[in-house]
């Protein structure tokens, strides 16, 4: 039996695989099956994040051109597109999206990840990630200002000199204002974690140190704007 073709085919090939799948694959599926997966529409209706509104104010013409008005539809569009870019650019190979209950990760980034947070279409396939070249992003929303992110995407080393994150100049139009892609990835990143009850849970409450946000004030914006090529101080028609 252990050397016959049928034995190898049936027991090793099919049965052992099926057994392992039942335990390691099907069981988690069964455990989570009652947690409904949120659709994009439902996600958008949970609330438009303030940064999206801000974006429309900062770049009125361009926002109008690419996304129209600020509403659930345009918000959902931006999220979907941003999610697509996050996958296409391999952001998920340099950034994880889950906080572990060990190694002080909750002190650095915030509440430990919960299964419920991943039951939505923007986590299909799930974006846990396996490597952190840059920090975890599941609690990134509102941590930094829109301007900070735009300057950062344009040329990360202008903002964080030691950064090894790639430049994404194609998120910007010829004149260095963010284009549809730039606005989308920005919205997506700012949305991450916004579903938490106490949101932004860390602003003014979190422990000091790694979690203090020192870059979202106007002074920082100004410096960044000068240092990078990106136009950050808003659109002048």
């Amino acid at each position: 039996m252990f050397e016959s073709k049928a034995g190898v085919f049936l027991i090793a090939g099919l049965f052992f695989f099926a057994l392992a799948f039942a335990v390691m694959g099907y069981l988690p599926i069964a455990i989570y099956q009652d947690e409904a997966e949120q659709t994009l529409e439902e996600l958008a209706k949970e609330g438009i994040i303030p940064e999206f509104v801000e974006l429309a104010e900062q770049f009125p013409d361009r926002f109008e051109r690419y996304y129209g008005k600020v509403n659930y539809d345009s918000f959902a569009n931006a999220l979907k597109r941003g999610h697509r870019i996050y996958i296409a650019e391999g952001c998920w190979h340099c950034h994880s999206q889950f906080i572990r209950p060990v190694s002080n990760e909750d002190l650095r980034w915030g509440p430990v990840s919960h299964a419920r947070e991943y039951q939505n279409v923007l986590q299909r396939p799930v974006l846990f990630g396996t490597r952190r070249v840059g920090p975890d992003l599941i609690r990134e929303g509102s941590r930094k200002s829109n301007h900070w992110h735009l300057a950062h995407f344009f040329k990360p080393t202008n903002v964080v000199p030691v950064s090894v994150m790639p430049e994404y100049s194609w998120f910007f139009d010829e004149d260095d204002y963010p284009n549809a892609d730039g606005m989308a990835i920005l919205t997506y990143v700012q949305w991450l974690g916004s579903w938490l009850n106490e949101y932004p849970y860390w602003r003014g409450k979190g422990p000091t140190g790694p979690m203090t946000d020192d870059s979202s004030d106007a002074v920082a914006d100004q410096t960044i704007a000068q240092a990078s090529g990106a136009h950050l101080t808003g659109e002048s028609p």
Partner: peptide
């Protein structure tokens, strides 16, 4: 499937 089960 999506979510954590898909992670598995």
């Amino acid at each position: 499937v999506g979510g954590s089960a898909a992670g598995a």
